[in-house]
């Protein structure tokens, strides 16, 4: 099952060229640029008591209510230092727009399909679960984020 889905994604990953990149702790992620609706500074947020921990809150995106997922918690990483406000990267998913709270926004990068590789086996589970491949960039590895799996908190062990 797992290999099957991966192979499908593999095809996708290799054909598309541009990625919006961002940082979460020391991890360097990329998400398919056509999936990104917009990038925003930190927004005022409404907490959702009793919701899974990774859901930071709801933001008002010009009249649209968008759920914000804290990527640090999603990846099981320690929280950001107090003075650092996260950035919103709003991605389109099957269930509508979802905002990912990340540490820092990077550039939009062109990638070479030839540098693509499947996620390393020894990657920790939380990370492996939500990425669908790795591009070997010149000085860094770009982890390709699987947006659908990132927002799927039921299947993933979100909390």
């Amino acid at each position: 099952m797992a290999t099957e889905t991966t192979s499908i994604r593999t095809g996708m990953a290799q054909t598309s060229g541009q990625y919006s990149t961002f940082f979460v702790a020391d991890l360097f992620f990329g998400v398919d640029v056509v999936r990104v609706q917009e990038v925003l500074r930190f927004q005022q947020m409404t907490r959702v008591p009793k919701a899974p921990e990774v859901i930071e809150g709801l933001i008002n995106l010009r009249g649209q209510i968008v759920m914000a997922i804290d990527m640090r918690r999603r990846l099981g990483l320690p929280p950001r230092s107090g003075d650092q406000d996260p950035m919103n990267i709003v991605v389109r998913t099957e269930d509508g727009a979802v905002s990912l709270l990340v540490d820092e926004i990077g550039d939009v990068l062109d990638v070479d399909a030839a540098t693509w590789e499947r996620p390393p086996e020894n990657l920790d589970r939380a990370t492996r679960e939500i990425i669908c491949g790795v591009y070997k960039m010149k000085d860094q590895l770009l982890l390709v984020l699987d947006a659908e799996r990132t927002v799927d908190l039921v299947a993933g062990n979100a909390a």
Binding site: T46, V48, K50, L58, N60, I65, V154
Partner: peptide, 27 residues
């Protein structure tokens, strides 16, 4: 009334969300 995303549908204590006069979201 705006529906909540799939991830929050399971929370029986909320019927949805709305946007208040000051732009804030309220459950």
């Amino acid at each position: 009334v705006k529906p909540l995303g799939k991830q929050l549908k399971g929370l029986s204590v909320y019927a949805g969300a709305t946007i208040m006069g000051d732009g804030r979201v309220a459950l």
